[in-house]
């Protein structure tokens, strides 16, 4: 149960091993969240992160295996989480893969894996999560979308389109849940300096996992539908969305 001071009792992280997922978990624990469940593809690599969350004051930290691509198992996975941990007050969807745009233009299988992970995997796990939260009558979901989904760019359109699909899916799902006591927050970060982007050169308006985590907490508290990180990207992206296609095409972005 979210308490009278806005603290979430139990939080589930899908993609709990991601830099943004872990940064958000640390920020929540610092604010008083007692129970943290990290659902990750490689649970064995998270032992140190678990210790750190405990040291920061979490009463209970669990790591469970979760694979976004294993869509057939998602329904049962969600059932098991709510069975095992009781009411879940916050679900953070933080999994996602970037892919190598150039390589994917030749390697269709690699492009499909990005689309399957970021879009199909998210749809597959968000629907049962939304059903559970509706049943319990309270809760929040934060979904990591991306500004890359706001307009197709030749430099990252496979990743961008997967996030665009996820973003639109979440807009509609958020409206469906709005009257049910469940909040859905769409988070649109710009370039985040994390392990997913470590091999790339940073771009303007780049940000950090910690800043994304703080923005998620603020957005949840304000009951926002969408947050941009950094927040000025909202206006930058709004400008870019309205550029004529012929002009946009010539931009080196």
């Amino acid at each position: 149960m979210k308490d009278g001071l806005g603290r979430y009792g139990t939080a589930l992280f899908l993609g709990g091993g991601s830099d943004i997922g872990l940064a958000t978990a640390r920020a929540l624990v610092a604010r008083g969240t007692q129970k943290v469940v990290l659902a990750a593809r490689s649970p064995d690599e998270l032992a140190l992160q678990v210790e750190e969350l405990r040291a920061r004051g979490a009463a209970e930290v669990e790591v469970v295996p979760f694979d976004a691509l294993a869509t057939a198992s998602h329904e049962a996975f969600v059932d098991e989480m709510f069975e095992r941990f009781g009411d879940v007050d916050l679900v953070v969807l933080a999994f996602g893969v970037l892919g190598d745009q150039h390589a994917m233009e030749k390697d269709t299988a690699a492009a499909l894996e990005v689309a399957r992970t970021n879009y199909v995997g998210a749809v597959s796990v968000l629907l049962p999560v939304a059903r559970k939260l509706r049943e319990q009558g309270h809760g929040a979901i934060a979904v990591l979308s991306s500004v890359a989904g706001e307009r197709g760019r030749r430099s990252n359109f496979v990743y961008g389109s997967s996030k665009a699909g996820l973003d639109v899916f979440c807009q509609g799902l958020g409206d469906l849940l709005a009257g049910e006591g469940v909040q859905l927050l769409v988070v649109r970060p710009g370039f985040v300096r994390s392990k997913m982007t470590a091999h790339l050169d940073p771009v303007p308006f780049s940000t950090t996992p910690g800043a994304v985590a703080r923005a998620i907490l603020v957005g949840l508290e304000r009951k926002a539908d969408v947050v941009w990180v950094p927040s000025k990207l909202r206006w930058v992206m709004s400008g870019l969305r309205h550029l004529p296609r012929t002009v946009f095409r010539r931009l080196e972005i």
């Binding site: 149960m1 009278g4 009411d87 509706r134 049943e135 319990q136 009558g137 309270h138």
Partner: peptide, 22 residues
């Protein structure tokens, strides 16, 4: 499954007379 709770005039400050989903 989420049960029931009785509620009066709602003057309790906390969540003693709330039952999300129930």
């Amino acid at each position: 499954a989420r049960g029931a709770i009785a509620r009066g005039l709602g003057r309790s400050y906390g969540d003693v007379a709330q039952n999300g989903g129930g």
